[in-house]
Structure formats: structure tokens, C-alpha cells
Design a protein around this nucleic acid. Structure first.
Ligand SMILES: NC(=O)c1ccc[n+]([C@@H]2O[C@H](COP(=O)([O-])OP(=O)(O)OC[C@H]3O[C@@H](n4cnc5c(N)ncnc54)[C@H](O)[C@@H]3O)[C@@H](O)[C@H]2O)c1
Ligand SMILES: NC(=O)c1ccc[n+]([C@@H]2O[C@H](COP(=O)([O-])OP(=O)(O)OC[C@H]3O[C@@H](n4cnc5c(N)ncnc54)[C@H](O)[C@@H]3O)[C@@H](O)[C@H]2O)c1
Lengths: 210, 210
DNA sequence: ATTCATTTGTGAAATTTATCACGACTATTT
DNA sequence: AAATAGTCGTGATAAATTTCACAAATGAAT
């Protein structure tokens, strides 16, 4: 949409910066250096300056960055002015935890609808979010572009096909299944078992500082 | 411990390969090519071959890989012969979901103890895992090297200090707090809000195929 | 036996990401 | 107004990761 120049690695750090700037702002701080930011978010200060520089000269030499200005800039860059609606598919253990969690501290993304195959869950309300039967996807998914997938792995592929057909553009997939989607759809995997296992692997094979 | 030659990016993919090989093995398949693996785990086949090659010549040209052999190899590489015990700190929404989930399908990592500050949770049992009061950390953490952190963000830093003091070596941190630890401790962050937000960012700024 | 379709393992190249290091500039203190 | 300490933005470099592309090997088919 804009300049596709922002490296993916940078893009993944933006929400992190945004959140911390929000904290600073709420604390009344109005000035911050890349060094301070670095200590807080655990990213090298040169990397932070480089990240910011893709968006132009946001800071002042010898001074640092103005918190409010930077915050405003990232707010619009991250589209935090308008609310993004997200659907959650699979209201089980994990899905319920997400529904009970309000993502929107410093954050304009909200899970607004839940879907489940279990007819007993349809019609209920968890954490203020209405739950619908999965068969109602077509009617209820209007205008929603992002889905969180927390169904059993065996269901992931078929549900994904439906979601794609309904026009979903992005999926945050918590199932261990590696789903297949058309090129235009973006899928991010969060694979908790893999994360845990790789952490254990690192401990055994890369002892001490990195 | 062994040859520190395995790139981190490779190490992070090993559990993924391992899981899929397990599936193949259970299906009775005894041969697989990097191309098939590639389609299943959505990793470029050259990358897979490169990853495997760090461990030596595990395949046969013109043939592919023997599933059972490869599986056995990764089982020992990932220390799946012995069980790894993990402690979970913070038995709330997210923590409870993890306790109710059995990580150990194809996987020898188990959450064996939960800890919470809420005295009403101490003494209970969730998903077969006993919950202790957080003050009992010292007595109960013996021999456990890995912890999952699912406490409120405000508690993350202080709890981490205690965990480090108790000899924990790896932390899987689900709180938005970027915790400070000595060099020797390994921390992996899983930041759900950041993941969601960056997915939304990518959708808006990188439309269509990547 | 020979051909043919596959598939590995890897040198080399390309791409992506992180880090170094310094000139230019700012605010503050003396 | 000069000196000082601090900080950005970025060219250059380094490091990490991915991908290309092909010789060498394999098994199956004829
Ligand atoms: N819970 C965890 O800690 C955890 C950890 C790692 C991975 N996961 C993965 O996350 C996913 C969900 O895990 P969970 O523990 O919440 O499972 P769960 O069984 O508690 O929940 C799954 C939910 O999906 C619903 N469902 C089933 N088929 C459906 C369909 N076709 N359409 C819509 N809904 C359907 C079920 O009714 C159920 O409510 C699984 O793939 C699991 O492997 C979970
Ligand atoms: N639930 C989600 O979907 C979700 C999503 C993203 C991030 N998170 C993060 O994960 C963490 C946990 O979220 P949650 O929704 O489970 O919160 P929660 O409030 O439901 O659970 C937190 C638990 O930690 C316990 N606790 C508080 N202080 C403690 C202490 N000092 N020692 C031990 N236990 C203590 C509380 O008693 C509670 O049971 C939070 O940091 C949250 O920001 C959660």
C-alpha cells in the first residue's frame, strides 16, 4: 500500500515499540532516547534507530525522540485509529482464555465474534463476546478480515478453506497444523509446543549467553 | 554442548520436523523426500535439506530420507528420550488452558507443577497437574529448569528474579513485559498482542503474496 | 545394461537482518 | 561563547539466513 520498503523484521517490532511508547506517554514522559527504549524492549539501540529511520527522521540529534509525536506517528502507521475486528474460531480451552482477555489495552484490535461447532456454545457470551455456531460463519463474518484459529488440529484445514472462501485475509493459527492457503492470504503460526521444545533444545545445546 | 554449529533458525525448525516425522511414522510411511516434507511443513525444500545437512548426511541421493531413521535421530537430538519437566507460574486464564492441554503428543515435555499467588488455587489440581502456592517455589522447584510465565505483566519482573534465584535456566514468557535476566538465562517471548497487531499491519501494508 | 526420472548435499550467490562507528547536531553547564 | 555530554541518522560492514542450481547417486523401467 505504502512504500513496501519496511523490512519484515522491522514490521514485527513496531507493535512492541508502540506499546512501550504508550506506557511512557501514560507515565507523562515526553522524551525518550533509543538507548532507553533499547533497555526496555531488549532490542539493540542501533536497530531501533534503523527501524525508525525507515519512516523518516523522527528524532532529533542530541535530543532523542518526542514521545507524543512518535506515538502519534505509530498510531496511524499501525492503524490504531480505527478498530480492527477479529473473529475467533474454536471456543475451547485456548479460545476461551483469549475471549476473557482484553487485548485492547493500548490496542485497537478486538475479538468481536466467536464461533464453535458445539451447539451448546452457540448463543452464549464469553467475556462480552457473542458466540455463534460455525454454520453461521457466512452471515456473521461480513467485514471481518482477520481470524484466530483455535480449533483442533484435525479441523484446521477444512475450517481454513471455509474462512478463505468467506474472504478472510489473515489467520493467526494456534493449531499445530500447517495450513494451506492461496498466496494472497497471510498466515502467522504460533506453535506453543514447538516454542517450548525449541527452548529446551537451546538450553541443552547453547549453554550460557546465546 | 555439541558442535555449536547449528544455526538458530534451523534449531527452531527441528521440533516442527520432528512432529511431522512422527505423524508419518504413525501412518506407516517409511520414506520421505524433502519435497514432501516441504509441502507439509511449508518450508522450502532446499532449506530442509540444508537444515538436515548440519547433522551429517542423513538421506540418500535419488531416494530421500528413511522416516524411522530420521525420527530416531531427531528424537535423541531433541532429547525426547528423557522427559523434561516444566513449571507453570500463574494459573489464570491462559495458564489454565495450558494445564488442560496435553503437550505430550509426540512430545516428551510436561508441565508437572503449577504455582499461583491465589491461596484458593493452591492445593487444587488442574488437568492432572498439582497447583502450589507461589511461596512454595523454593521447595518444589528442585530439578525443574524451565518455566512458563503466565502471570500479570506487573508481576513478571519480580517473579522472574525469584525464578532465576531458584536456578531456572529457561523461561517461556507470555506476558507483555520484557523481562531482565542474567546472560546465562534464556528467555523466549510469545507476545500474542504483538503477533495479532503485526498480522494486521502486514495485511494493510503488504497486500497479496508476501 | 541402459535409460530415465528422482533426489540428495552443497558450493556459490542472493537476500535479509543486525551491528559498528562516526559526522552532525542539540541542550546544558560553566 | 566555549566546552561537554548526549543522541540521531546512516554509510559501511558483518553476520545470518535463504535460495539457486547442479554434479553425483539411486532405484525403477525397459
Ligand atoms: N490449549 C493449549 O494450551 C494449546 C497449546 C498448544 C496448542 N494448542 C492448539 O490449539 C488448538 C485448540 O486447543 P484447545 O486446547 O483450546 O482445544 P479444545 O478442544 O479445548 O477446543 C477446541 C474447540 O474447537 C471446537 N471445534 C471443533 N471442531 C470445530 C469446527 N469444525 N468448527 C468450529 N469449532 C470447532 C470445539 O467444540 C472446541 O470448543 C488445538 O489445535 C491445539 O492443538 C492448544
Ligand atoms: N489470556 C490471554 O489471552 C492473554 C493474551 C495475551 C497475553 N496474555 C498475558 O498472559 C498473562 C496471563 O494472562 P491471563 O489472562 O491468564 O491473566 P489472569 O489474570 O487470568 O491470570 C494471572 C494469574 O496469575 C496469578 N498471579 C498473580 N500474581 C502472581 C504472583 N506474584 N505469583 C504467582 N501467580 C500470580 C493470578 O492469581 C492469576 O491466577 C498476562 O501477562 C497477560 O498479559 C494473556
Amino acid at each position: 500500500m505504502e512504500q513496501n520498503k519496511i523490512p519484515q523484521a522491522t514490521a514485527k517490532r513496531l507493535p512492541l515499540y508502540y506499546r512501550f511508547l504508550n506506557n511512557l506517554n501514560q507515565q507523562g514522559k515526553n522524551r525518550v532516547s533509543s538507548k532507553e527504549l533499547s533497555e526496555a524492549v531488549k532490542v539493540d539501540s542501533a536497530t531501533i534507530r534503523r527501524d525508525f529511520s525507515y519512516f523518516g527522521a523522527l528524532g532529533k540529534k542530541g535530543y532523542g525522540y518526542n514521545v507524543e509525536y512518535l506515538l502519534g506517528f505509530f498510531r496511524s502507521t499501525l492503524d490504531q485509529n480505527e478498530t480492527t475486528e477479529v473473529a475467533l474460531i474454536g471456543v475451547g480451552n485456548l479460545g476461551t482464555a483469549f475471549l476473557n482477555y482484553s487485548f485492547l489495552k493500548n490496542n485497537n484490535i478486538r475479538i468481536t465474534k466467536g464461533f464453535d461447532a458445539n451447539p451448546e456454545k452457540a448463543g452464549t457470551n464469553i467475556g462480552g463476546v457473542p458466540i455463534y455456531h460455525i454454520d453461521e460463519l457466512h452471515e456473521k463474518l461480513e467485514g471481518i478480515r482477520v481470524a484466530i484459529l483455535t480449533v483442533p488440529a484435525t479441523e484446521a484445514e477444512t475450517i481454513t478453506e471455509v474462512l478463505v472462501k468467506e474472504g478472510i485475509e489473515g489467520i493467526l493459527n494456534f493449531t499445530p497444523a500447517r495450513i494451506s492457503v492461496p498466496e494472497r492470504i497471510r498466515v502467522h503460526h504460533i506453535d506453543l509446543a514447538v516454542e517450548l521444545q525449541s527452548l529446551v533444545y537451546f538450553l541443552k545445546h547453547y549453554p550460557l549467553g546465546e
